[in-house]
């Protein structure tokens, strides 16, 4: 389904992503994990065709992002980290725009919007401008816009940020059901507990480089630790967590 080959991205002198390669199979739930600034979002933006890689390529269902970005984007549903929306539109207007840009028939757009909004408890807000929406409501709209064209590959960048626990539970269940229905889902997250619970395989990146890739068991074995949190700390070189916290308390005093 997804093949990432030697993906590299430079911003001037900064190397955001270095020589990253991995594959994700059809129907797989794949996690992308890394500390802040590790290059997760940059990697995702290159996969969805928002950023041109400095080197390397991405293939989705055999289509190259560099060679055929429009075909790739037809097959991807993307939930961005920041709530980038035309907030002066109503939710219905925005979702109709996205549906139309995917060339969906108007009837299908209308019914999809109604169904998705109802299941996400947003039917009352559907005809209100999104300027007054909370972060969680915006996140739900982004999820709806990512699913409206029924894509094969769904990519979510920090999808649980800003969601209340009920919405997060719905999102988690939704991810499971999407995968059970044969969809491929990739998501990035800081929350290792969620990743551990949801994902079969995951990729840990740090400073733009691949540290480990495989099933949870393979990663635990690779790091020689018993939990994912400890493995993550060890692989990313942050082992003095308590000491750092004490330093902060000292600074406050």
């Amino acid at each position: 389904m997804l093949k990432v080959e030697r993906l590299t991205k430079h911003f001037g002198k900064l190397q955001a992503v270095r020589n990253l390669s991995f594959t994700v199979d059809k129907g797989e739930l794949f996690g992308l994990v890394g500390p802040n600034g590790a290059g997760k979002t940059t990697t995702i933006k290159m996969i969805v065709g928002m950023l041109d890689p400095t080197d390397g390529d991405v293939h989705v269902n055999g289509y190259s992002v560099a060679e055929n970005p429009v075909e790739v984007k037809k097959r991807i549903g993307y939930v961005p980290e920041n709530c980038a929306l035309y907030e002066n539109l109503t939710a219905r207007e925005y979702l109709e725009l996205v549906g139309n840009l995917h060339h969906l028939p108007q009837k299908r757009i209308t019914s999809q919007i109604e169904k998705l909004m109802k299941s996400l408890d947003l039917e009352d807000a559907i005809d209100r401008r999104m300027t007054g929406y909370s972060k969680g409501m915006k996140q739900k709209i982004l999820l709806t816009s990512a699913l409206i064209h029924n894509p094969d590959l769904i990519i979510m960048d920090e999808p649980f940020t800003g969601l209340d626990s009920n919405s997060a539970a719905v999102f988690k269940q939704l991810i499971w059901q999407l995968v059970a229905g044969g969809k491929t889902v990739i998501f990035s997250s800081h929350i290792l507990e969620v990743v551990e619970k949801l994902c079969k395989r995951l990729l840990i990146i740090h400073k733009g480089e691949k540290l480990a890739c495989g099933t949870i068991d393979e990663i635990l074995a690779h790091a020689g630790e018993t939990t994912l949190v400890k493995s993550f700390s060890k692989l990313t070189g942050v082992t003095d967590v308590e000491h750092r916290a004490s330093d902060i308390i000292d600074a406050l005093e």
Binding site: V48, G49, V70, K73, K74, I76, P80, L85, V98, H102
Partner: peptide, 9 residues
């Protein structure tokens, strides 16, 4: 760019 670039346009 942020909104439209992931879409097939």
């Amino acid at each position: 760019f942020e909104i439209l670039s992931p879409l097939p346009i």
